[in-house]
């Protein structure tokens, strides 16, 4: 169960990309514009949003794969956003990642024993002579057998490959794992297996997950708390049950209303109009005001900060 020790803390994270080319005239893409988050040990925080919301960029900055424009990232109190390459690598033992596409994230020429054994070797955790046994045990934990040790990634199905990706991520016994769309590429019948595996591993090893995903039904199943992003900023953060039962931000409400309900007796709700505005020139005031059915004049001029609207429940809306 989630403790109280803060595993991961992100403060005022910003990522602006300069647009190249003569016509750009110093324009920047505001991919992430001031995001603050906390995850306690053993907790799953889901980060949801549509494409272009900046959720994956937040994940990449936490992992040190993309340097932030501003802001800090702390892992168990230690600042990690300003580490050099060597120290970041050492830290990887504690902070691991699972990607969406297991095909793209596994070296096609490496055998399973080497893929999963690599972190054990890199961090000097297990002597070479014992590595094979150790990998066998990790594979067993993710539902793969010793017969898989000497196979190559292409010999596995999509679901098995994601199990491999998870095996590699947990090999060094990390305390925090960033999962970026870990089940989006999987079919429904396999998705359930992988979701259950992630839940089991968390219970067993006390992992904290940052679970980045666009599928709201999946997120509701796996997370303790949920944070919703829109156009580079957080619009709502709440315990998962509260967020899904009583969403306070109109964007969260629209997002939930858009999910097709697998029940033909439930009538379809009318979609919200419009599309995600450009992150180059985001709307003034509240970024959602151009699509918001409730927008008032002040929403066009004053950006609402994230504020507490119920215990543990924050929303960035003047009307929430």
């Amino acid at each position: 169960m989630a403790g109280s020790e803060i595993a991961l803390e992100v403060e005022g994270l910003v990522k602006h990309y300069a647009i190249r080319g003569a016509a750009a005239r110093g324009a920047v893409v505001r991919a992430v514009d001031g995001v603050s988050l906390r995850i306690v040990a053993g907790e799953t925080l889901a980060l949801v949003g549509e494409s272009g919301s900046g959720k994956s960029t937040v994940g990449r900055m936490i992992l040190g794969l993309t340097p932030p424009t501003a802001g800090t990232v702390r892992l168990f109190g230690q600042r990690i956003d300003d580490l050099d390459h060597r120290r970041m690598r050492a830290l990887r033992r504690d902070l691991q990642l699972v990607f969406q596409d297991p095909y793209a994230s596994l070296n096609p020429r490496m055998r399973v024993v080497d893929i999963v054994g690599e972190p054990l070797a890199n961090f000097g955790l297990v002597p070479a002579a014992e590595r094979r046994d150790h990998v066998t045990e990790i594979l067993r934990r993710v539902g793969l057998g010793p017969e898989h040790l000497d196979r190559l990634p292409h010999e596995f199905s999509g679901g098995q490959r994601q199990r491999l990706g998870i095996a590699r991520a947990i090999a060094s016994r990390p305390r925090v794992v960033v999962c970026d769309e870990p089940v989006s590429a999987l079919d429904v019948s396999v998705q359930a297996q992988v979701i259950n595996l992630l839940l089991d591993l968390q219970a067993e090893f006390g992992l904290a997950y940052l679970f980045i995903a666009h599928d709201l039904a999946v997120v509701e199943h796996v997370s303790h708390r949920t944070a919703v992003m829109y156009l580079g900023a957080l619009v709502e953060v709440a315990p998962t049950r509260d967020l899904f039962a009583a969403p306070r931000h109109p964007y969260t409400q629209a997002l939930l209303a858009s999910v097709p309900v697998p029940d033909p007796t439930v009538p379809r709700r009318p979609p919200i109009e419009g599309e995600l505005p450009s992150a180059v020139d985001p709307p003034s005031g509240c970024r959602f005001h151009t699509r918001c059915p409730l927008a008032e004049p002040r929403c066009r001029t004053v950006a609402p900060p994230l504020r507490v609207v119920a215990p543990g429940h924050e929303a960035a809306c003047h009307l929430a």
Binding site: S189, I195, N196, L199, L216, A217, T240, V261
Partner: peptide, 18 residues
């Protein structure tokens, strides 16, 4: 086996999927 919206209100969060 498909995750559904409303699961956390019905069963509490983080139920195992079939």
């Amino acid at each position: 086996s498909m995750p559904r919206l409303g699961s956390s209100a019905a069963h509490g969060p983080r139920g195992r999927l079939r």
